[in-house]
Design a protein around this nucleic acid. Structure first.
Lengths: 310, 310
DNA sequence: CGGTGAGCTAACCGAAGGGTTATCTCGACC
DNA sequence: GGTCGAGATAACCCTTCGGTTAGCTCACCG
């Protein structure tokens, strides 16, 4: 019984899927499956089993999750306690969506570290569901993205999501569902802003092409033949020089809120708290509205979902 | 950072010595030293350092011990929870002194398992100090022996410790300190009944010969040239047939109490509680006063301390 | 009834963990 | 200033962990 195995088990039970846990941890699915198998063998209980839709905890599994979760939490506590006792830099583990990791979050974090000092920041990319699990299990300190349920979420900024396409592009009869959509990996997350938009308009999967990053999606849109979602103030330059144009429809542009979500204050890391306070400052606003440079997203997982356009 | 490393660290800090922890765990001293080194490296802090007499926790170490202790405890909880959920046999880990492990405890445990049913018992041998640490860290469920400080101790039975020797043996001018003492490994534990008796009478180490078990010590005593401590009712047979005789002196025989020590009720394992209730029954008394057979002492550590008689 | 998706198993591999014995270091202490 | 006791290190070994890819199993579904 190792801490890694317990962590895996907690994540699987929380996400209800081996694959999802593997994705959240940034490892292959068999790695997770095996860790689970080892724990099962050690405790001589299946702990969690497949059941029609999703997975189900055994009675023993139910009791072990909560214990395992506490242990994983304590392990984090131990490391934090040592760092803190020795006056070492605090560690702030941020997770966000792929889209935001390429735009406003790095710039926000850069401004934050410059201001706060003595804080070491790592940035990871995850789906909305994963964010909730990671923050909930204290595998990340704070999530920047859609509002997360079950944790302490706070609106950080208001932003406008627009669709951009070639200036000549016109929306025909089929509405938004008739268009080809060029999205970044966040688009495959049904709980993300873009994902829910796709769902709402019942855009068929065959019309969605996933690019490794937003810039690539915009290029495809500029080349014609489809639209790409974008954070409005990120494409003003392209629009101004005529490479792209905003596409209008009843639902678009869309005004949305960006949230910072972390645990309740008592369980929150100090660094997370500092970041939450920082995001309310004008400096933070400025950084988010005029993004450039910043902390590179690297840590937890560099996922590249590519669904080929067939 | 593994659970084993944390367990080692907790034991070292509790016992104040690497060697003692190694003994309590039944492994070599470098094994413990290395585990500690690995944890130190991982957490980048010495955690605990040598300081003149004994060892001292660093500030970070102080914080980590308590966290580590909780983690080790939770690990035990997890295993117990699974066993219990699945209706498997409960596990009862008993520690006792070498002397008692050869006499009344096996018989007591045999009677207990026969009566209680569905409980799997393992019996380990430890010094008094180790017992306190093992019970305190839930590495054992209950200790049978001298009263332990810091845990919930309860007197179990009254017994008489006598000294036996060859029937012709006489105590000369030097008193008990002038005799040669034949003891079992428990005699090397200064907190044990025999150990404190040796200390009280300032018996020099050169007069103490440690045997692997009590029977061997008695044989040596019967052969003449020294005395062996014994639980009175265990040597009645030998005395009756004239092989041994009781030696009398102002302090001997000594009436003593045997204790059962475990954690307070809320943190106590169910099995430990059952044993505590059982020891109060006439059946238990009978088993302890007429010992024969029983659970063999094997588990945690089969220590054989032999100090050669020089 | 064949395809598909999700979990499991097998086979393999490198890195760490954890154990041993032997040896080194260093402070305490006659 | 030897000596001794106790912790740390070195060298070595075997096991386990944790990761990979490839392939199996099995429920579900058109």
């Amino acid at each position: 019984m190792t801490l890694a195995q317990l962590k895996v088990f907690v994540l699987v039970s929380r996400l209800g899927s081996v694959r999802a846990a593997a994705a959240a941890l940034g490892v292959s699915e068999p790695a997770v499956s095996q860790a689970l198998a080892a724990l099962r063998q050690h405790l001589d209980d299946p702990l969690i089993t497949r059941s029609g839709t999703g997975m189900e905890l055994t009675p023993a599994g139910r009791r072990v999750v909560s214990i395992a979760s506490q242990m994983v939490n304590l392990a984090v506590d131990a490391e934090v306690a040592v760092r803190q006792s020795n006056g070492a830099a605090e560690l702030l583990r941020v997770v966000t969506s792929s889209t935001l990791a390429q735009s406003i979050v790095p710039s926000l974090l850069q401004a934050f570290t410059a201001r706060a000092g003595g804080i070491e920041v790592s940035l990871g990319v995850a789906t909305t569901e994963e964010m909730a699990a990671l923050v909930g299990e204290r595998l990340a300190d704070i999530a920047i993205g859609p509002r997360l349920a079950g944790v302490d979420a706070e609106a950080v900024m208001r932003y406008r999501m627009t669709l951009v396409g070639h200036p000549d592009l016109r929306v025909n009869g089929g509405g938004l569902a008739g268009l080809r959509w060029f999205v970044d990996p966040t688009g495959t997350d049904p709980l993300s802003d873009v994902g829910s938009l796709l769902e709402k308009h019942r855009v068929p999967e065959s019309h969605v092409m996933v690019f490794a990053n937003e810039k690539a999606a915009w290029s495809a849109a500029a080349a014609g033949g489809g639209v790409a979602p974008a954070i409005d103030h990120m494409v003003t330059a392209e629009v101004d020089r005529g490479a792209l144009a905003r596409v209008h429809s009843p639902d678009v542009p869309l005004d949305l809120l960006l949230y910072a979500s972390s645990l309740e204050p008592s369980r929150r890391s100090q660094a997370a708290d500092k970041l939450r306070r920082f995001v309310r400052t004008p400096d933070a606003m400025q950084a988010m509205y005029r993004p450039e440079g910043g902390v590179p997203a690297a840590k937890f997982r560099p996922p590249v979902y590519v669904t080929l356009w067939s």
